[in-house]
Amino acid sequence: MSAVRYDLPETDDFTRPYWDAAAEGRLLLRRCGECGRAHHYPREFCPFCWAGEDRVMWEPASGRATLYTWSVIHRNDLPPFGTRVPYVAAVVDLAEGPRMMTEVVDCDASALRIGAELELTFREAGGFAVAVFRLAPA
């Protein structure tokens, strides 16, 4: 019996554009045509003004973000995280406005600072491309 993968998404017709774009190296956001605000994670309605799906559209993100906060995870017993420790769990502010939970990769955690400029990259996870971030070049 294989272990449950807690890091893999459940996809459906609504989220398929998001995951297809990720496989191409693009991050999509949802933007409301009623109030104009972008949000992430993808929802069929606007979480700010409750406009319905017909008013909320997909749009590409720039891939730029700033580090809001982070934590270095040294122990995680859920598969497959235990084999990846230590890793940096983070919350970032996307340039388009939404705040996103993610991971910061390819750097020593001691180099991280609140407000650090980040750039989008992707990590493979069980056949999915997952949006993560790394420090942007100076």
Rank of each mutant, 00 (worst) to 15 (best):
A89Q: 08
H39F: 15
R5I: 14
R31E: 07
R5N: 15
L27Y: 00
R134N: 00
A111I: 03
H74E: 15
I114D: 01
R75K: 15
L94C: 04
G126F: 02
L28V: 00
E96Y: 06
A129N: 06
L8M: 14
A116K: 02
G82L: 11
D108P: 07
R123Q: 09
P60S: 13
A38S: 14
V85E: 13
L94F: 04
L135M: 01
C35T: 09
D12E: 06
D108Q: 10
E44T: 11
L28T: 00
S62V: 03
Y41W: 12
E53S: 15
P98C: 03
V56H: 07
V91S: 10
A111Y: 05
R64W: 01
A129I: 06
V132I: 07
P137I: 11
D20T: 12
D13E: 09
S71A: 15
V56I: 07
D106F: 03
P137D: 14
W58V: 08
C49A: 13
G127C: 07
E117G: 03
T15L: 14
E117P: 06
A138V: 13
R43W: 08
Y18S: 03
L78V: 12
V85A: 11
F81T: 04
V105F: 08
L28R: 04
R84I: 05
A22M: 01
R75V: 14
F45R: 12
